[in-house]
Amino acid sequence: MIKLTNLTKIFRTELIETHALREVNLQVNEGEFAALTGPSGSGKSTLLNILGTLENFDAGDYQLDGKSVKGLSDAALSRLRNEKIGFIFQSFNLIKDFSIFDNIELPLRYRGLKAAQRKQRIEQALELVGLHARRDYLPGQLSGGQQQRVAIARAIAGTPRILLADEPTGNLDSLMARQVMELLEQINQQGCTILMVTHDPDQARRAGRHIQIIDGQLSDTMLYEPFAAQSA
């Protein structure tokens, strides 16, 4: 469902040009769980942001579901992000003075869903991440692991087809990291494609596919059976 051909990204500042991605070719199929690893500054976040259409690129092409994202309007890109893509960030990015419920509601608001539909989806998502009792808490009243689970609930409440996670366990201790990983695996098993940046070799091994980036190039792509297919 994701197809990158010769994708190139160059950051230009007044002083230097950084080739963040060099002619990257990548194909990700529906239902895959892919781990993205590489040294710091190698371009992992850049790749994820381009996949999430938060960043544009300089050359090559990015096709999502067979359609190029090039030249789409702001409104079309927003709709695409809202309906097809879920984001999970290393620092959770919850709005501190919104309740858990209100945080999860954000993407559903932008989709224009009715109040009843929003409520139903939020409750389903909270059920899945096991935080139903905390719906009226503020993010600050939750532990890091719980906050990341709220962020995951927000990402999946809109039932996206792709989940993009940038070091989702980077700020968590190992126990909480494991809980989050298990949750992601569970979501993947329900058919959601996941691309996850990680520095943890164990996590990379647990993913169905392991993609390495070094200096903006996909140097090595080890292919396993997609996790979902494996367990089926």
Binding site: G52, L54, D74, A75, S78, R79, R81, N82, E83, F87, N93, I95, L106, P107, Y110, R111, R154, G158
Partner: peptide, 12 residues
Amino acid sequence: SLRRALGASRAQ
């Protein structure tokens, strides 16, 4: 930026 990432258009 967060709102944009979650799918808000500039118009919204």
